Simulated scan of single mutants.
Amino acid sequence: MRRLTIYVAEAKSERPIHELEDLLLKEPGIERALVDVEDGEVKLELDETKIKESQVIGLIERAGFHIE
């Protein structure tokens, strides 16, 4: 299991946070996704045999979110 922390600009209010969590948790290989509402910090646990960091970032960006 690999831990990854990223910051998402829009993940600072309730609706985008729920959208982001739903998007991430539906993806095979993402075992855990927690979003901190104060600073947009997203903590993930990944199974790197199923998904890579670059794929996660691409998924987030294609959904219209911006990585800080």
Rank of each mutant, 00 (worst) to 15 (best):
1 M>G: 13
2 R>C: 03
2 R>K: 15
3 R>N: 09
4 L>V: 10
4 L>K: 10
8 V>W: 00
9 A>T: 14
9 A>K: 15
10 E>H: 00
10 E>D: 05
11 A>T: 03
12 K>T: 14
12 K>E: 15
13 S>C: 14
13 S>R: 12
13 S>A: 12
15 R>K: 15
16 P>Y: 05
16 P>L: 09
17 I>N: 01
18 H>Y: 12
19 E>G: 09
21 E>V: 15
21 E>F: 00
22 D>Q: 12
23 L>K: 04
23 L>P: 04
23 L>E: 07
24 L>E: 03
25 L>A: 04
26 K>T: 15
26 K>Y: 04
26 K>Q: 13
27 E>A: 12
27 E>R: 13
28 P>H: 07
28 P>R: 10
29 G>E: 08
29 G>V: 11
31 E>D: 12
31 E>M: 11
32 R>E: 12
32 R>F: 15
33 A>W: 04
34 L>T: 10
34 L>M: 10
35 V>H: 06
37 V>F: 15
37 V>T: 12
38 E>C: 08
39 D>L: 07
40 G>R: 01
42 V>Q: 00
43 K>F: 13
44 L>T: 06
45 E>W: 09
46 L>K: 03
46 L>F: 09
48 E>D: 08
48 E>N: 05
48 E>V: 10
48 E>R: 05
49 T>D: 13
50 K>T: 07
50 K>N: 06
51 I>Q: 00
58 G>M: 07
58 G>Q: 10
58 G>A: 11
59 L>I: 11
61 E>D: 05
62 R>Y: 06
62 R>A: 13
62 R>V: 07
63 A>Y: 07
64 G>W: 01
65 F>W: 02
66 H>Y: 09
66 H>P: 12
66 H>A: 05
68 E>L: 13
68 E>A: 11
68 E>Q: 14
68 E>T: 09
